[in-house]
Write a protein that binds this DNA or RNA. Structure first.
Lengths: 113, 113
DNA sequence: CACTATACCTCGCCTGTCAATATATTATGC
DNA sequence: GCATAATATATTGACAGGCGAGGTATAGTG
């Protein structure tokens, strides 16, 4: 069985950037979106999510600000910077290529048969 | 830029199992195959390769034996066990599903637009 | 005789993931 | 009234896989 922690490893950044490319958002919703999109099979755990936000923000790929909700728990929103958007576009293109390579490596054509 | 160490992370096992599913093979060639298939863009580094062999063998997914070459450097060949082959088939099927999920997560449809 | 290719192996560091834990607000059911 | 669940953020410390750096050995080539 593929290990679910390692399946997304390396793609967490890109997944978050992708979510933010569609508009500012915040941790809890991004986490829920990932679960919903994958039918609950994959998830960005909270610890992963928040440490990733810190890393991306330190790299100036995203910026954060507190929401102005007047009821409910506070939300910290994240916004994609220009650099973040460029990286997202790059990573999206790379994924297309790497996906094909991994598929080839895993499924390959049978040799001599 | 996607990090090449993390792109294969989690798939290393499956890639090796895949290579062995086509017949017994050995480390050096598997490494070269991966480089060739990916046009040199991805590689299983030696340290990764050999530690992975140890792990897979400890889990009885592969078995090893020394080749009977009479010239050149000695080769340790690896053979897929039945359990290894079953796992390979499972992982191959899972990759198809996870690949679609990651694509959806990274490329998604634009919302509200 | 130096260099390259083939071939194997291990140690220890690095980094991303996550379980566990903590905190705060609001809604719902009993 | 009170427990529980859902919404929301955050940190710590442990774990595991990948790999740089280092090492060994054989054989061919200029």
């Amino acid at each position: 069985m593929l290990n679910s922690s390692d399946i997304l490893r390396g793609y967490t950044d890109t997944i978050i950037l992708s979510q933010l490319a569609r508009g500012d958002s915040y941790g809890y919703i991004i986490s829920k979106n990932v679960q919903e999109i994958t039918g609950g099979e994959l998830s960005l755990k909270e610890a992963t999510l928040y440490t990733t936000f810190r890393r991306l923000e330190a790299a100036s790929l995203i910026e954060s600000y507190w929401g102005s909700e007047e009821v409910g728990a506070r939300r910290r929103y994240y916004h994609l910077t220009d650099a973040g958007r460029r990286l997202y576009e790059e990573n999206k293109a790379e994924w297309t290529r790497y996906r094909a390579m991994i598929t080839e490596l895993i499924e390959g054509e049978e040799r001599s048969k």
